[in-house]
């Protein structure tokens, strides 16, 4: 499975954030998306997750791994317009920095509700407590109102929904380890690594060390373009210098 982005463009007023971005993400790999503040990482995620209508370009998921690159794939697939997606919103799981959960429900009620609503899309639905154990969430806390949960607990619930229950082909994580303690952060990292083989995982971060630790590939978003860092350089001593040099290049577009 591959996620193809082909000449994706998006602007806010006269400021171009994504400038004909093209890239192909592959299943079984964890991609780190690095970029400066305001580079467009969240914009890119919002375009992928269909929260934002981009100006032009195409995004598509090649479920059957028919071609290796986007132009070939898009030639083989008929599309009705210049700006298009060939996938459903539910094919993209989005883990936000700030979790979005209904405060008036308990964790258990919300998971139960979520499973019922999405029943047809869930393979081998499990018991709620079993799902809780997947993310090291204490089942006893499942009967408390979400309003009283800590940030870490809410994040775990969100990850449970976005990653484990529906198992969307593409998972986007926007600064996923913000406000996690050391133990929780390790649990989450291990969780992400354990599920990567069946998904395309892209997460955005500012922390180079986290990207080095977790990612198989690193892609830098700068000047409206995605530029990969060669995988062999990720763990090299020059990695940090190379990334910073890339991010410090002057921007060419307004």
């Amino acid at each position: 499975m591959r996620l193809h982005i082909h000449e994706l463009e998006h602007s806010f007023d006269s400021h171009t954030v994504l400038n004909k971005v093209s890239y192909t993400f592959e299943q079984g790999r964890i991609y780190g998306l690095l970029g400066r503040n305001g580079a467009g990482k969240t914009t890119l995620f919002n375009c992928l997750a269909s929260y934002l209508e981009f100006n032009s370009g195409r995004i598509a998921i090649d479920y059957n791994d028919t071609t290796k690159d986007a132009p070939s794939f898009f030639e083989s697939v008929a599309t009705s317009s210049d700006k298009s997606r060939n996938y459903k919103e539910s094919d993209i799981g989005f883990v936000f920095t700030q979790p979005h959960l209904p405060e008036f429900m308990t964790g258990r009620e919300f998971i139960k509700f979520f499973i019922e609503i999405n029943g047809g899309k869930i393979e081998n639905p499990k018991d709620v407590d079993e799902y809780f154990r997947m993310v090291a969430f204490n089942p006893a806390d499942g009967d408390r109102l979400i309003k009283g949960y800590s940030h870490g607990m809410m994040n775990k619930l969100q990850m449970l929904i976005s990653m484990h229950i529906l198992k969307p082909p593409v998972i986007l994580l926007d600064e996923p380890l913000t406000s996690f303690d050391v133990v929780a952060a390790l649990e989450v990292k291990n969780m992400i690594k354990s599920i990567k083989k069946d998904h395309i995982i892209i997460f955005s971060t500012h922390i180079l060390q986290l990207a080095q630790d977790l990612c198989d590939e690193i892609v830098v978003l700068h000047d409206g373009q995605l530029r990969p860092i060669p995988p062999e350089k990720i763990h090299s001593p020059e990695f940090e210098a190379e990334v910073i040099a890339l991010l410090q290049e002057p921007e060419s577009h307004a």
């Binding site: 269909s50 989005f94 979005h100 209904p102 405060e103 008036f104 999405n118």
Partner: peptide, 14 residues
């Protein structure tokens, strides 16, 4: 405040 501000981020809810 209690419900839709969070739930509208989920595709199935929309």
């Amino acid at each position: 405040r209690s419900c839709d501000s969070a739930m509208l981020t989920y595709p199935f809810y929309r």
